[in-house]
Amino acid sequence: MVNTLPPTPEEPASGGQRPFVELTDVSLTYGDFGEGLLALKDFNLSVGQGEFCALVGPSGCGKSTTLKLVSGLRQPDAGGVIVAGKEVSKPLKIVGMAFQNPTLLPWRTSLDNVLLPLEIVDPHRRRFRKERARHVERAMALFDKVGLKDVADRFPWQLSGGMQQRVSLCRSLIHEPDLLLLDEPFGALDAFTREDLWDTVKALWEERKFTTLLITHDLTESVYMAETVHVLSARPGRVIHSQRIPAHLRRTREDRFSPAFADTVHRLRQHVGHAQENPS
């Protein structure tokens, strides 16, 4: 029912598609002082074009570091990071990012917060004023999809946590990135809001199929959202288990309460348990 891939991410992860993100034998040490903190060691990961994949693992295992490497905000000490067929050597402009903290600018309305990337990123920046009406239209369409239409001219501090996180998601998607990096964006939300947002993100992904890397502590979330779940070991992190999640397991909210779903979550839990017990 659930096919478990061997932890060799060399083989294409998603139905034979070519990998869009590929990390090969990556190592990274934090800290410039003598006793550095080894965050990742011999880390291998491959994400197919348009694939939704989740990274789970014990805390401090280098999940966020992986995102920094993929986005080009950090360079590895050893190994290669390839995104969209190119070696990553500087921050990529084709990524959208959202974090646990929505990090909205309090002096801008929701709409202006979402437009921020277009004022900064290069092909749009120069023409921003001229094309503002078109951008606003696009932002409003996005707002409509995530249920924010009525709060476009409100300020972030007038919105609930869930609403702020929706705005943050829209900001990460407005420039139509090819790669979406989500670092526990649902972590600080209450359970019901979180479930709503799962469906929102899923729907957006179904529509555009941007390659997505989701970091989470929540196994239910990872199984419900992702096509492939990668379990990371304790620090120094590397992928110790990769698992495909068949689509029929996670079509609707109700599916989360099926025995097969629970079984999958349970098995992943055991792998995370191993990761906590045996730091590599």
Binding site: S71, L73, P91, V121
Partner: peptide
């Protein structure tokens, strides 16, 4: 995190200073 978002958008120093 916000600095990361801005950097990944390729924001120049001057733009970050002015906008944020």
């Amino acid at each position: 995190e916000l600095a990361d978002v801005l950097r990944s958008l390729g924001a120049k120093r001057g733009v970050i200073l002015r906008k944020v």
